[in-house]
Structure formats: structure tokens, C-alpha cells
Design a protein around this nucleic acid. Sequence first.
DNA 1: TTGAAAGCGTTACCAG
DNA 2: CTGGTAACGCTTTCAA
Lengths: 367, 367
Amino acid sequence: MIKLPLFRNRLQNIFDCFGKSIIMDEAFSKGKILVNINDIARLAGVSKATISRVLSRSPHVNESTRKRIQKIIDDNGFEPSHLARNLSRRKSQTIGIVIEDIANPFFISISSEIEKILYEKKYNMMISSSQWNRDKELEIVQSMIRSSVDGFIIAPISPDSEAVALLKRTGRPFILMNTFSEDPDVNYVSTDDIEGGKLAARHMYSRLRKDEKIILVTGYEHQNLSRRMEGFFLYMESKGIERDQITHYRNINTYNDGLAIVPTILMRSKLKSNKASIFITSDDIAMALQEGLLQNGRTLPEDIRIIGYDNIEFSRRCRIPLTTVEQSQKDIGIIAAMELLELINNPLKEVKQYLLPPRLILRDSNP
Amino acid sequence: MIKLPLFRNRLQNIFDCFGKSIIMDEAFSKGKILVNINDIARLAGVSKATISRVLSRSPHVNESTRKRIQKIIDDNGFEPSHLARNLSRRKSQTIGIVIEDIANPFFISISSEIEKILYEKKYNMMISSSQWNRDKELEIVQSMIRSSVDGFIIAPISPDSEAVALLKRTGRPFILMNTFSEDPDVNYVSTDDIEGGKLAARHMYSRLRKDEKIILVTGYEHQNLSRRMEGFFLYMESKGIERDQITHYRNINTYNDGLAIVPTILMRSKLKSNKASIFITSDDIAMALQEGLLQNGRTLPEDIRIIGYDNIEFSRRCRIPLTTVEQSQKDIGIIAAMELLELINNPLKEVKQYLLPPRLILRDSNP
DNA sequence: TTGAAAGCGTTACCAG
DNA sequence: CTGGTAACGCTTTCAA
């Protein structure tokens, strides 16, 4: 019977051996497979401090011994443990991304921009979605803290959600994304959604026909949406169209919600006979409405004109390419990543608050 | 001048203090902010072993002291470091996902299925894309090894890419996804692509009109694609249509490639006057072709009929909803995750090789 | 039920 | 340029 201080672990180590070709006979004879810095040190006949130096490309190591050691490292397929390294260095080289929905094309393109930059700067990313649930959002942030992420990019459910408060309170580096904050100490990058709402309204108004219905469709009660709505209403008011003349369908959150509301809209707004212009505060839902209306035999854009919001990749590829208000996912991603990296390296850097300008994109759905 | 053994780290720790509300005065007076297991132990007047026990819900701890300690933990917002925990436990509760393109809707839906299961089982996931580059694929796997992931789900560029070989050689748990392997020791979950190609061919053949051109459009040379092509050709041959009667456009990899090839197809296959049926081995590219053909004034599906492959979420929402061969992203994701988790917990478990049946989905593009 | 102490695999300080 | 060694923050064994 083998008797070792940490027997269980050793056993696991031995288990791991199945299917491996063994390079380090010496280590193997001791029932050990995974190579670590000590093994390499012993093999090279130097101290592990030296190995550590070649691992981190320190200049303070003789060129010839560096080469010799590097060869031993390569030959044995030694991969230094980031766990140990990070524990020792007190940083993990990973940053946490918290978004609302990982399947949302809008966030996907932002994330992929972020990833490019982080990859370049040798950072990893950890990504998780809150599903518009405040508890889950908090849980995610806590879990990321346990994982020792170096900083956060978070699209919070609200700028004063508990998760954000926790980040603030514990002084961890973070950037708010797609949300703006009244707090002058908080870094954020967002789009000027009031302006965005106005852009949509102005275009819609310029194309408005006689007796045409104006319809507004919105999703989750979120700061962004309120601002888009607000801008929309403000412009319309400036043209003498009051809020009660605009039919408002709320809480249409998913593609399927969008499909499901179509019969109601058709009936309530009497769209069988009337023409209409619809502003929908997200492209994803806009596509659902479009689909539903087409299925119900309406012709677009002749009968019903649609304006969306976001300009996701797919907006130009859907049934009737969407006229929409663009938020540049590329810019948001790049700025968020760059700012966070700076913030991590210099916690005293000045606060930056970006409110990016939206842009109207004309396509067939409301030409 | 402060003199401490690890001065730089302490300094960083002090830096971190800005903007924090301080709970632990004692620790603070020592220039220390981040609470750790020792602080809690000291505060509770017990050893850190006991703290560790309440953290891991060990039954061997007095109920009253457990409660007392838990309160101290909560009050101080102590989040145990997973870095340290994982280093000590020799596992990370993280699994690595390696795919070819993170922006590909097909992989996105698979990943989100995987995430659901992992979340439930308290695992984290780390995801990265190889961009069809073998070197990058290997790099990613190495980096994940350094991050001590417990296992891999990999959609490899080829079943015998270096990355897979490395995984095999070092005996790490992994599941191949979207690829099958001749090696009887390798776990995989994939779709029967030969059958898929046949399904497409059978449907196309059944709708074929007189003098209609048959066109095949394929992307990256990948095992999957070859098999889809193979199935397609086999069925056609069984009906007396030889390979040289089928025009084949290769290496169409991205949406933009798809748009770009349209003029060539129109010209080379004389589609201005001829009718045609096209099989494209991915929905994403199928949508691009569709778009390009529409822009060139062809009417679909009257002039040209299209069959895609994958059945991604968007296939039913694009310009002309796509007839396509479905690979169930949900099934693939669920099976891959479950199998890997089992494999991690029991390295000796029997090998499972899944070849899931594809399914033809009829929509407007080739009704 | 508890505590002491030996790990886990690195890094970084100090001395030589 | 190199080595010895404390430290990082936990878990696990063993003994009490």
C-alpha cells in the first residue's frame, strides 16, 4: 500500500497518466507526470528562480543558459501554471465582461471587438450574461471577483444596480457600457440615445403621409430605452405631435414577443386599412415585427414603414433591410477595452465618459 | 520610508484602497484592504482550517461556530480566491471551448447550450476561436493548459491537428465536436454529414426542372464539408448525374466571399437565362448568395433554388427563408457538455462517439 | 470538532 | 548573472 502525505492527489496524478507518452522518466518513476518549474530546474541543474526568469523573459540571464533552459522547457512540453503565477503576481491577466444577453447580436459584436484588443494585449476575457436579472448580475460579479479578474466591463441592468455598487465600493476597476451614470467618478461608454430617438423621429416625420398612424414599440424598461423614447417624443412634440397620438406597445423583449404582438397591433391600430410608421427600439424586435406583418399579408414598406435601432450585422440581411439608428458596436468595444486597460494600469487616471453619436442608416424598410 | 518584504505588492494593495469604504479597521491600519482567509480566521478567533471548512460546507464543523463565521464572512464581503483554491485543489472548475469562429451563429448557439449546463454544474467556461488557423489553435490549447482548465470541447480544424494530438498525448479530457475521428479512443459528437449531403441532394433532385443547372458552393476544406459534398455527389450519381455535370465553386468562406462570387456564378453558369438549383454547405454563405442574386435581379425561388446547411437561428428570418439541412445545435451542445463532465469525473469511462442524424427543413428558398 | 503544518507552482526580494 | 527563500491564499492530512 502506497503511503504518501497527499495520497489522493498523487493518485489523481497517476490516473492522469493513462494514454500519455512519458518524456521525463525520472519524474515518472516517482508517479508524477505533470511537469512543473521544479522539475525543469532540476533537469537543468539551476535554481527555479532562473527558470522563472527565462519564463518571464527577464534580461538578467545568461544567453547561453537561457537557450539551454528553453530547450529543456520545449522538449518536456512544460506549460507554466497561470494559477500559480497569478496567485503570486496578484493579478490574473483576465478581465470580466458582464452583459445582459450573450446571444444578442449587438453584444456579440461588441464582445468580439473587445476580444481582439485583449488578445493583442495578452489579456484573457471571461464573459457571462445576467439575463436582465439583478440577482444573477450580482452573483456573476461576485464570482468574477473570486476569480480575481483584474477589471470589469459591464453593461448593467441599471447604473445603480447592486453589482455596480459593489464594484464601486470595493474600488475595483470597471467601465460601464451601454449605460451612462450621473456619478462623475464612473467611467462609461454609451451612445447618445436621446439624440438617437430624435434621429428616428426626424426621419419618420419627414416621410410621414396623411393620416398615417405612429406606433412605438419598446422592450425592457432600461435606461437606454427610456432615453430613446424620450428623444423620439421630444422631436415629435416639437412638430406638434403629442404623446397621446402615438400608440405605444411596451415590454416586447424577445423575437417571439415581437411575433406575438403583431395581431394585437394589426387589430388595435386598425392596420388592415391604415398605413403606419413604426419605431422599434431594437433591430432584433424590428425584424420580428417585419416578419409578422409580412405573414399577415401587409406590404412593406408601402403600407407600413419600420425604423429599428442598433444596426446589428443582420439588419442589412433580413427580409426587408432595416432603416435603423446605428450605435457603433466597434467603437463601443474598442473604447471600453482600451479605457479599462488604462484604468487597470493607472488607477488614478482621469475619468472618461463617452457618449457616442448615433447615426441614421437608410434602407428599404423606411427609405 | 516603509520597509516591507514585498513592498511593491503592498503598495498596489494600498492603491486599491482609493474609493473604498473600509470595514476592517484592523487590517486597514496595516495598509491591507483585500480580505483573505487569514483575516477572517483572526477576526473569528479560529484557525483558517476551520474557515476553509465552512467555505466548502464541510459537515465537520460545529453549527454555532459555522453561523458565527458565516456572518463574519458576509459582513466583510469576503470572496475566497479561486486562484488559491484551484491551485491547492489541482482543478479549476473551468472548461475550455475551442471553436473555429466565435462570431459564427452556429457555434454561438452551441456555446450557449453548453454554458447553460456548465452553469448548472458550477463550472466556468473559457472560449476562444482558432480562425481556421492551426497555429492559433495550438496556441489556444496551450494557453488553456496553462490556465489549468479541467477539460476541453474542441471543434478542431482537423481531427489530427496538432492541438488534438497534444491533448491526446498529455491525456487531458476532451471531446471533439463537429468532427469525427477514426481513433476508437476519441470521444466525439458530430452530425452525419454524408447523410446530410444526401438529404440535400434528394430534395434538390425531386424538385429538379428540365435543363436546370446544378451548382455546389463550398467553403474551407474541412472534413465536414468534404463529407457533405461526398453525400451530395453520391446521391446524384445514384440518379445518373455525374460529378462533372455539377458546377463547383470552392473556398467561399465568408459572407463577403459569398457576395463577391455572385457575378462569376451568373456569368459562368449563364444564370441570366438558365434556371438553377444551388446547394451551399453553410447557411451563412447561402444567405450571401441569396442576397447577391436578388440584387442582380434574379427572382427566388422561381429562377434559382437554394438549399443551405446548418439551420441556424437566422435561416428562417432571412430574405427568403432557407430550405436547409439541420444539425441540432442544441443536441450537440448538450451532449458535448454532459460527456465531458462525465469524462472529467471518471477518466476511465467508456468512449462515446455520436453521429447525430441531420434533418431536412423545408422553407421558401426551395419549397 | 478543531488546529498545526505541509503542500500547490509560481514570483520577487535580497544577498552574493 | 544566479541562488535561496518568503510569500501568494487556499486545502488537506494528521494528530489531538
